[in-house]
Computed example of a mutant assay.
Amino acid sequence: MAKEASDLTTIDLFSDEKRPGRPKTNPHSRSVQVKINKRNQVKRDKNNGLKRVEFKIHQDLFEQLDDLAKVKGLSRGELIESILKNSMTATALNISK
């Protein structure tokens, strides 16, 4: 008997065929994987001496920071860090005068 792809009555003939898509390589669900990855990222950041800072800014300022970061070839976080460092240096110079 020939095997036809459109034959639904003999579906058992196709049970050994591989399904398309990426094979499952991790035993954890996606939500558990995300938690594990986030925990590992926090550990890496801590080992690198980094601290997390969150704040809210207006949408216009956010877009300006984003554009400037792209022009300078930096991430938004790196740009904000450099702006803060420059501001701290300038403030320290003004205090010492």
Rank of each mutant, 00 (worst) to 15 (best):
residue 31 S to H: 10
residue 40 N to E: 15
residue 97 K to E: 08
residue 5 A to V: 00
residue 58 H to W: 01
residue 41 Q to S: 14
residue 97 K to R: 07
residue 59 Q to S: 04
residue 1 M to A: 06
residue 19 R to K: 13
residue 50 L to S: 07
residue 30 R to K: 14
residue 62 F to M: 07
residue 68 L to C: 06
residue 36 I to S: 08
residue 90 A to I: 02
residue 36 I to T: 12
residue 65 L to Q: 04
residue 66 D to C: 05
residue 49 G to E: 06
residue 21 G to T: 09
residue 54 E to N: 14
residue 42 V to A: 14
residue 45 D to W: 05
residue 69 A to W: 01
residue 27 P to C: 02
residue 87 S to I: 03
residue 86 N to C: 08
residue 31 S to F: 07
residue 85 K to G: 03
residue 86 N to Y: 05
residue 46 K to L: 06
residue 94 N to R: 11
residue 48 N to C: 10
residue 55 F to V: 08
residue 2 A to Y: 02
residue 41 Q to T: 10
residue 7 D to C: 02
residue 63 E to G: 02
residue 52 R to M: 15
residue 93 L to S: 05
residue 97 K to T: 05
residue 81 E to I: 01
residue 52 R to V: 15
residue 79 L to A: 12
residue 7 D to V: 00
residue 38 K to F: 12
residue 95 I to C: 01
residue 24 K to S: 09
residue 31 S to P: 08
residue 49 G to D: 01
residue 17 E to P: 02
residue 59 Q to P: 05
residue 24 K to P: 02
residue 90 A to L: 06
residue 3 K to Y: 00
residue 10 T to H: 07
residue 56 K to V: 13
residue 25 T to S: 09
residue 28 H to E: 08
residue 88 M to T: 05
residue 63 E to T: 05
residue 20 P to Q: 09
residue 14 F to N: 04
residue 78 E to A: 15
residue 39 R to G: 07
residue 77 G to I: 05
residue 56 K to P: 00
residue 64 Q to Y: 02
residue 70 K to Q: 13
residue 87 S to W: 04
residue 55 F to G: 10
residue 29 S to M: 11
residue 51 K to E: 15
residue 12 D to E: 11
residue 59 Q to H: 06
residue 11 I to Q: 10
residue 51 K to P: 02
residue 34 V to F: 03
residue 44 R to W: 10
residue 55 F to W: 10
residue 32 V to L: 13
residue 85 K to H: 13
residue 57 I to H: 04
residue 8 L to D: 04
residue 88 M to W: 07
residue 97 K to Y: 02
residue 58 H to E: 11
residue 14 F to L: 09
residue 44 R to Y: 12
residue 23 P to T: 09
residue 93 L to R: 03
residue 73 G to F: 09
residue 6 S to V: 00
residue 87 S to H: 10
residue 29 S to I: 06
residue 91 T to A: 05
residue 37 N to I: 00
residue 11 I to G: 03
residue 63 E to A: 12
residue 91 T to W: 01
residue 53 V to D: 01
residue 57 I to W: 07
residue 80 I to S: 12
residue 20 P to E: 10
residue 15 S to H: 09
residue 62 F to P: 00
residue 20 P to V: 06
residue 60 D to S: 12
residue 24 K to M: 11
residue 61 L to A: 09
residue 78 E to F: 01
residue 92 A to R: 03
residue 13 L to S: 11
residue 2 A to L: 04
residue 81 E to V: 04
residue 66 D to G: 11
residue 54 E to V: 02
residue 82 S to A: 14
residue 13 L to G: 12
residue 74 L to N: 10
residue 10 T to N: 10
residue 10 T to S: 09
residue 78 E to H: 09
residue 9 T to V: 00
residue 9 T to H: 03
residue 75 S to E: 10
residue 66 D to K: 15
residue 11 I to D: 12
residue 9 T to Q: 08
